[in-house]
């Protein structure tokens, strides 16, 4: 399924309503307003902690539904999607690198990636190995993921997120534990993959943004 745009209309996490915050929505480009992410463009969401960036990713990935307003993929209200629709979208349209990474510690770095690739059959094992090389973690490829550092896990999770076709890729603080050099390697890999599929890139940052070498739209939460 190809998603051209993601629209948000007056979306606000319910938890904000309960806390009585953000009801005016004046300071946000996303909450409680009308906005749209478009495929082929790159968005950087700058946010302080606790402003709801992970909530936004969870809403867009169908993990949480505790928001008011309406989110649509093209014209489809995502509140109408069923579990199987979401599973399909997660394999074919929406790539996601969660902040917690969701790396399985008991599997090797490679198996973590193959676990995803088996579902999509998007890359060959050779291509995956060269992605490990490109991010300079090929020497960790057979190691149990539990023994990797957070920065190494972030890169494994990024490779895994790229093992599927997508219309949008959501990256929740993808390089928070990476130095400038590795940040750039990751950024290039993401933008290349997105460009190849005319896909949209949405990444969040609390101060260490992905250093993409393409024009991007900066949004405040």
């Amino acid at each position: 399924m190809n998603i051209k745009s993601i629209s948000l209309e007056n979306v606000l996490p319910k938890v904000f309503l309960e806390d009585g915050e953000r009801t005016s929505g004046t300071a946000s480009d996303i909450w409680n307003t009308s906005m749209r992410f478009e495929a082929g463009k790159c968005y950087c969401i700058n946010a302080a902690s606790g402003t709801g960036k992970t909530s936004l990713c969870s809403f867009l990935m169908g993990v949480r539904t505790d928001y008011t307003g309406r989110i649509s993929f093209d014209t489809t209200d995502i509140a109408t999607l069923g579990i199987n629709d979401w599973c399909e979208l997660r394999r074919t349209s929406l790539a996601y690198l969660p902040q917690e990474l969701d790396i399985f510690d008991e599997l090797t770095a490679l198996d973590n990636v193959l676990l995803k690739n088996r579902l999509t059959d998007f890359h060959t094992e050779g291509e995956i190995r060269s992605m490990f090389e490109a991010l300079e973690i090929d020497n960790r490829i057979s190691r149990p993921a539990g023994k990797l550092s957070v920065g190494q896990k972030q890169r494994v999770a990024l490779i895994r997120a790229l093992c599927q076709p997508f219309s949008f890729i959501l990256l929740d603080e993808p390089v928070s534990h990476l130095d400038a050099r590795n940040n750039e390697l990751c950024a290039n890999m993401v933008t290349d993959a997105a460009a190849a599929q005319q896909a949209g890139v949405i990444f969040t940052s609390v101060g260490n943004p992905l250093t993409v070498n393409v024009p991007f739209i900066s949004l405040a939460l």
Binding site: V63, I83, C87, E88, R90, D102, F104, Q164
Partner: peptide
């Protein structure tokens, strides 16, 4: 729960 929700997030069907 964490493993299962992780797998679901990857696109594995329940």
């Amino acid at each position: 729960h964490k493993s299962i929700s992780g797998l679901l997030l990857l696109g594995y069907k329940p």
